[in-house]
Amino acid sequence: MYVAVKGGEKAIANAHALLAKRGRGSADAPRIDYPQIRDQLGVLVSRVMAEGSLYDPELAAKALLQAQGDVLEAVTLLRSYRTTLPRFGITVAVDTVGLPAERRVSATFKDIPGGQQLGATFDYTHRLLAEDLETPDVATPTAPVDEPMPRVTDLLGADALIERDRPDEGWTDPDPGDLTREPTVFPMSRAERLQALSRGDEGFLLSLGYSTQRGFGNNHPFAGEVRVGEVEVEFFAPEIGHAVPIGRIELTECQMVNQFVGSADQAPQFTRGYGLVFGRAERKAMSMSLVDRTLRHEEFSERVVSPAQDEEFVIAHSDNVEAAGFVEHLKLPHYVDFQAELGLIRSLRREFQARHGTEASATSTSTSTSTSTSTRSEENA
């Protein structure tokens, strides 16, 4: 580290002071506080919570403030803090079937039970910079729709037009591994892959999802349903013998419906891609569902022809904290390594020059002889 360099410790302290000064900005401007970030930059806070693998809007807002808006630095801070927390157990799997959606849209059917709910979205804005950001007057929101909102995939499943979401009626999900406490081992189960994708880098997953639509992964999807809303979290308390609610969290869920022509032993049907992430993160959930379906190629005997189908490539490179660590460590001192490389390059260059210097001398002598012969021939002529 730079601490080992003469004066390095003082230089690092000065660097910290300069960082704090740069982050504070003009002393004439009021200091931003984390409640403002939490309440007014909700989409950004959701991304930090998802990639930081910790649902806590206040902590995510504090991390963003400390990181001066650097999302990856905030994610790193949140994950580091997460490792210090005690673990009391595992919550009951959340029930997203009855997710009371603040926003729910489907690109497959115009009229669906419960209706389409646009909610808060950028989808229909003009993408023009506003002169001011004052909140416009809106009509009083209507009461939530009481009509049930079955999943679109369940409607297709009723006619066996889409693969089953579980092998048989009596099948239950096995307890998934915990990527935060256990080493990653390939190949992974689908539950472990979804866990890794849920906290993966949004930009990376977006690029991979886009690649599958351009022909790199044989993925031709329809957005079966995208939902955003709050769901209750329950924890099973052994001392009282049943689950108790401990709070509510906001989630975004995406179910992609993908084409599948069938095979010799499988009837033609639609297949599923799934995405579930913390907070308001539709782009992330959709990208995740695209990549999830692409990584299921073995289940459908599909050829592997693209990076998005390579499980190890996708999972190992989707973790932005690990990726940043490898890239940014290059800024740290590598003096000894570089001196070794420098000595090797100098030695190789000396060998190269010695070898090619002899060849150059031989070539030069041959050229001089040819020139003299040519000159005499011209004189004789």
Rank of each mutant, 00 (worst) to 15 (best):
S372V: 13
V152A: 01
V105P: 03
R272M: 08
E163K: 04
S374V: 09
T365F: 08
H220K: 15
G42T: 02
Q66C: 13
L19N: 09
S189R: 03
L342Q: 07
E225A: 02
L155K: 03
F270Y: 08
S207R: 12
P333V: 05
P183L: 11
T135Y: 03
M149K: 09
A362R: 11
V233C: 06
E230W: 07
V257T: 10
R164S: 02
Y210Q: 15
E379M: 15
E282Y: 01
L194W: 03
A139H: 12
S370R: 11
V226H: 01
D310N: 08
E230Q: 14
S80F: 15
V97L: 14
L155C: 06
Q213I: 14
A101R: 05
E253R: 04
I315Y: 02
L206C: 13
Q266T: 14
A243P: 08
L77W: 09
V97I: 13
V43G: 04
P148H: 07
I112P: 03
H126S: 15
G98L: 11
T121G: 03
K10Y: 15
Y2Q: 13
E192P: 05
P183D: 07
E234A: 10
A120Q: 13
G229A: 06
S318H: 00
V277K: 00
F326Q: 11
I112L: 06
S80T: 13
A74E: 06
F326L: 11
A160H: 12
Y274T: 05
E102G: 12
E73S: 08
E253V: 04
